[in-house]
């Protein structure tokens, strides 16, 4: 049985690798952020300091779009760490966000948290989505609308 599972995994891996090679996926460049090199400039780069971002104007966020952004692995991928309604394979390290909209967090507070959680919890594991430009401001406004809709 175990052997079959391993063999299946091997075959699946080969298929996957073949598909990836066929796409010829380019290696993205993250050299604008700190890296581990002793010699490249990114090895000397400072981490972007925490930014307390004020929400300007009305939120103007779209909850449905925010849900897509939150779920997509190549965008917010909030599901990596959080349970969110309707999400598959949620993570378990971050708080369950199923009822975030009922926790009494204000819109401005929520926006500041997703922009850069380090301003709230310096030892957070959460990426600074706004400060490090993982998501755009509009995407973050959409995510906030989605979060606040979770009652």
């Amino acid at each position: 049985m175990k052997r079959l599972v391993l063999l299946a995994a091997v075959l699946q891996g080969l298929t996957f690798a073949g598909a990836a090679a066929a796409q010829g996926a380019a290696v993205p460049d993250y050299s604008a952020f700190p890296c581990l090199s002793h010699t490249l400039p990114c090895g000397e780069l400072a981490a972007r300091e925490p930014v307390r971002k004020e929400l300007e104007g009305p939120l103007d966020g779209n909850a449905a779009r925010g849900k897509q952004t939150a779920f997509a692995r190549n965008r917010g991928n909030c599901l990596a760490c959080h349970v969110m309604p309707g999400g598959s394979q949620p993570g378990s390290r971050g708080p369950d966000l199923s009822h975030f909209g009922s926790t009494g967090r204000s819109t401005a507070e929520t926006f500041a948290m997703v922009w850069d959680m380090r301003t709230v919890n310096p030892e957070t594991l959460m990426p600074p989505f706004g400060t490090n430009a993982v998501l755009t401001e509009q995407e973050l406004r959409d995510v906030v609308a989605f979060l606040l809709s979770l009652k």
Binding site: P28, Y30, S31, C35, G43
Partner: peptide, 14 residues
């Protein structure tokens, strides 16, 4: 790559 960090070449001193 998964951490969205500049990957180094195998053999890099780091």
């Amino acid at each position: 790559g998964q951490m969205r960090t500049q990957a180094l070449k195998p053999g890099d001193p780091a």
